[in-house]
Simulated scan of single mutants.
Amino acid sequence: MINKLLNTKETAEILNVSEAFLERDRWAGARIPFIKVGARAIRYRSQDIEKYLEDNLCYSTSEGVA
């Protein structure tokens, strides 16, 4: 099943982050998976965005603090 592919601007709007945040994420190792289409186009799968949100769901600000 093929889900809609989102561009960087659409993904940034969904996550309420800047496009620069997503660019830095790709450069630093991509916590959010992406797809390169051709030489320059970057797309995100909606299912990967949903999984990223689900994986980062917290119930306390102290979660993950050592």
Score class of each variant (00 low, 15 high):
Glu13Gln: 07
Glu19Asn: 07
Ile49Pro: 04
Asp48His: 07
Val17Cys: 08
Gln47Glu: 14
Asn7Trp: 07
Ser18His: 03
Thr11Ala: 08
Asp55Ala: 05
Asp48Ile: 03
Lys36Asn: 07
Leu57Tyr: 11
Asp25Ala: 03
Ala41Gly: 05
Ile42Cys: 08
Leu57Asn: 12
Cys58Leu: 14
Ala30Met: 08
Ala20Arg: 05
Gly38Lys: 03
Ile42Gln: 09
Ile35Lys: 15
Val37Arg: 12
Ala30Lys: 14
Lys9Gly: 13
Lys4Asp: 02
Gln47Trp: 09
Leu53Glu: 04
Tyr59Asp: 09
Glu13Thr: 02
Cys58His: 12
Gln47Leu: 09
Leu15Gly: 01
Phe34Pro: 08
Glu13Ala: 05
Gly38Ser: 01
Arg43Tyr: 05
Glu10Pro: 02
Met1Val: 05
Ile14Ser: 03
Lys4Tyr: 10
Asn16Trp: 01
Thr61Asp: 14
Glu54Gln: 09
Asp48Leu: 06
Gly64Leu: 03
Arg26Gln: 11
Ser46Gly: 10
Arg26Trp: 09
Glu63Ile: 01
Ile2Ala: 15
Tyr59Trp: 13
Trp27Lys: 15
Cys58Ala: 14
Asn16Glu: 02
Leu5Arg: 11
Glu10Ala: 06
Ser46Ala: 14
Thr61Trp: 10
Thr61Pro: 14
Asp25Gln: 11
Leu22Asp: 00
Thr8Trp: 06
Gln47Thr: 11
Glu50Ile: 06
Arg40Leu: 01
Leu6Ala: 12
